[in-house]
Design a protein around this nucleic acid. Structure first.
Length: 358
DNA sequence: AAAAATAGCAACCGCACAACC
DNA sequence: TGGTTGTGCGGTTGCTATTTT
């Protein structure tokens, strides 16, 4: 592996890495059960584990914690992830705080495997398939586009005003890199959700433990409380009533999220409500207050359509009223373009053209 | 039936930041 | 005030199971 930078675990010889054995899991779980998840530095030594503290913490938070739900993601959870991803980008921990019983790692893995594929498929059929003129430059006839070293797209010819507009927006969006930094609007929405969530989260599934692992420390000092929590959690997993509440919780969140993506933009561009896709979308404040009275039967496809089309509609309106690309669309477009350009590059190579590093 | 390719996911890595000394 | 430590987080890697050829 060459000159790999050292990790904290490298400093101590004999530290074990790799998959955890059931024995190690038992040692760690027993120790945490007795002492609570605090002072990770001392955990490996005191628990008799040949692991670094970081590894122990990770194993606990991502796998051994009793409140973690394992197994397939429900459709509601999928919707939630798609919606939050579109709103916040890759803020896995923040998403996990709104998805009780799921870890950031789980959500991240799920996004990078299942959801990414689903959305790409949807994106291709939506933008590259037929109707949208603005993204047809990503179709097979993409010879007019080249990709230079600074990741700017250069349009040489054959693009109409809408296509050029789409391209320009795409370029601006990826070069400004807003995906990695939540906007103030995002932060405000997050705060709104936090306050709102307290009212909506069903009894017993308050995610304060998920929000901040440190907050659980005090509660876990007492063995009885800890064991009780574990038992409650196990019971809860099989509790239909709980699932129903959870579904309500997600649905209510989604209703808000569905409008907020559009509402964010409208709040900036226009104070009054606008009708989009048959849904009255108001300012984010109004969206929040109307949430509780709206019912949602949205499918994942509908959601993606809604997210993508909300931006697409903006493109065909005048330039001044164009909403920005959603994070989701930036990502999808980025992926699609990259794919197209890689194919292009490969084709050039196979045709004997120069194919140096990009 | 075997090899190769792909998917899923647990675990690791390194950076950032806050708390503490 | 600067160094150290502990923790959180997002990106990436690598192992294993599954599917495809």
């Amino acid at each position: 592996m060459g000159n790999r930078p050292r990790c904290c675990c490298d400093e101590v010889l004999g530290i074990k890495k790799g998959p955890w054995t059931p024995e190690e899991d038992h040692l760690l779980a027993s120790y945490i059960k007795q002492h609570g998840p605090a002072n990770w530095r001392s955990v490996p030594t005191n628990a008799g584990l040949l692991r670094c503290s970081k590894s122990c913490r990770l194993r606990w938070t991502n796998y051994l914690r009793p409140e973690i739900k394992r197994g397939n993601f429900t459709e509601l959870e999928e919707k939630m992830i798609i919606s939050l991803q579109s709103l916040w980008g890759n803020k896995w921990a923040a998403m996990a705080s709104h998805l009780p019983q799921r870890t950031d790692n789980d959500i991240k893995n799920y996004w990078n495997t299942d959801l990414k594929k689903k959305l790409m498929k949807k994106f291709h059929s939506h933008h590259l398939g037929s109707s949208s003129p603005n993204f047809q430059f990503l179709n097979k006839d993409y010879s007019s586009i080249s990709f230079n070293r600074t990741r700017n797209l250069e349009c040489n010819h054959n693009l109409d005003i809408h296509q050029t507009s789409a391209l320009n927006k795409f370029i601006n969006s990826i070069t400004s890199s807003s995906t990695s930094t939540p906007s103030s609007t995002t932060y405000a929405l997050s705060r709104l959700l936090e306050g709102w969530e307290d009212k909506v989260v069903p009894n017993g599934s308050n995610n304060s433990d998920n929000n901040n692992h440190n907050t659980s420390n005090n509660n876990l000092d007492d063995d009885d409380i800890f064991i009780k929590k574990v038992e409650e959690q196990e019971t809860r997993n099989d509790d239909d009533a709980h699932l129903s509440n959870e579904a309500d919780y997600f649905e209510s969140l989604l209703t808000f999220e569905n409008t907020s993506n559009v509402a964010c933009w409208e709040q900036k561009s226009s104070p009054q409500s606008t009708k989009i896709h048959g849904t009255t979308s108001a300012s984010s404040e109004e969206a929040q207050t109307t949430t509780t009275t709206t019912t949602t039967t949205t499918t994942i496809e509908d959601m993606v359509d809604s997210i993508l089309l909300s931006d697409h509609q903006g493109l065909i309106e005048d330039d001044q009223n164009e909403p920005p690309f959603s994070v989701l669309e930036k990502w999808l477009l980025d992926e699609a373009t990259q794919q197209v350009l890689e194919e292009d590059h490969m084709e050039e190579c196979s045709n004997g053209l120069s194919c140096g590093a990009m």
